[in-house]
């Protein structure tokens, strides 16, 4: 009869701490513990822990010929052992806590889970998107457990699947009107950026300390800059004091549009739908398209030459 003997291949335990001469904790790591990013194959962690020959409580196997190495996890023999372990442990947690009360659908805290490519980097295995989706499904169900009764171990287990920065946790600082009655808005367009201060007034406009007709020679640009006020019929209700830099005249004028609209929304938040209809709320993300090799500009092809 073959004796099962937990034994690891010395070659596979290559990670050894040079100071303390002890083996890393990675060998006993499982999916419930967060681990650092690694591109190395994670199968070595699944492999069996090192045999401690110095300890005396372990009796040597009676039958040395039949002794063999047994991996720590049965997933060692699967194609994606870390993934399999993770999925199984999550399913085990779900089985364990499935009777806990849940929140109403849609009321669960918003969580940004790691994408499949981020997960692949984490485990170092070529996990398919559809397989990772199984994990996500379980995580979504676990996330529905009411936060008041969320067990700490479950919370810790879910933590490693969350993105490092939760975009939903970022709360925008609310814009305020300062003690002098000014509201500030920042607008950008192309490569220009504008900082616009709006105060209640009679329609005076100063851009970079100059009158608007000195900054923008084109009447069209001046009208663009003041378009949010015009569209909401507020030109004679506010004074504009703006700083604008970068880019060209059109970009600067349209950066002012966005900045003015944002500052106006601080004074009067109810104007947001009107401003959106006027096209002043969304930042235009277009930039100059990069030049490509083989082309004269971004898309322009050289003239056709016969031979």
């Amino acid at each position: 009869m073959a004796t099962k003997f937990t034994f690891s291949l010395p070659l596979r335990i290559s990670y050894q701490c040079p100071q303390c001469r002890t083996h890393s904790a990675r060998s006993i790591r499982n999916a419930s513990m967060p681990r650092p990013f690694s591109t190395a194959s994670s199968t070595r962690a699944i492999a069996a822990p090192a045999i401690d020959f110095s300890s005396t409580d372990k009796v040597p196997p009676p039958n040395m010929q039949n002794a063999r190495v047994v991996p720590a996890s049965p997933s060692y023999f699967s194609g994606r052992p870390d993934f399999t372990d993770n999925l199984l442990s999550l399913q085990a947690l779900l089985r364990k806590y499935q009777t806990l009360p849940t929140v109403a659908p849609g009321q669960a805290p918003r969580v940004a889970w790691r994408t499949v490519s981020q997960y692949r980097l984490l485990v170092g295995e070529p996990v398919r998107a559809s397989k990772y989706h199984q994990i996500i499904e379980v995580l979504k169900r676990l996330n529905q457990i009411h936060p008041a009764v969320m067990p700490p171990d479950l919370h810790a287990a879910m933590q490693i699947y969350k993105r490092d920065l939760n975009p939903y946790a970022v709360v925008k600082r609310p814009a305020i009107i300062d003690a002098d009655g000014r509201a500030c808005g920042i607008g950008r367009r192309k490569s220009s950026s504008a900082k616009v201060y709006l105060v209640p007034g009679e329609g005076e406009v100063l851009v970079n300390g100059k009158s608007i007709n000195h900054v923008f020679g084109r009447v069209h640009d001046r009208e663009s800059a003041l378009w949010p006020l015009k569209a909401t019929n507020r030109v004679d209700k506010y004074n504009v004091w703006a700083l604008v830099s970068g880019g060209g005249t059109t970009g600067q004028a349209e950066a002012l549009t966005l900045g003015t609209a944002k500052a106006l929304m601080v004074h009067e938040p109810d104007l947001k739908p009107a401003l959106r209809r006027a096209g002043c709320v969304t930042r235009d993300p277009r930039r100059v398209e990069r030049k490509k090799p083989g082309k004269l500009k971004a898309r322009k092809m050289p003239a056709w030459v016969k031979r």
Binding site: S211, N213, L229
Partner: peptide, 16 residues
């Protein structure tokens, strides 16, 4: 109207 005058006044750099 009041609004048109105000707008054009502002666009013309303060009634230039």
């Amino acid at each position: 109207s009041e609004g048109l005058v105000a707008e054009k006044w502002a666009v013309s750099g303060g009634g230039v």
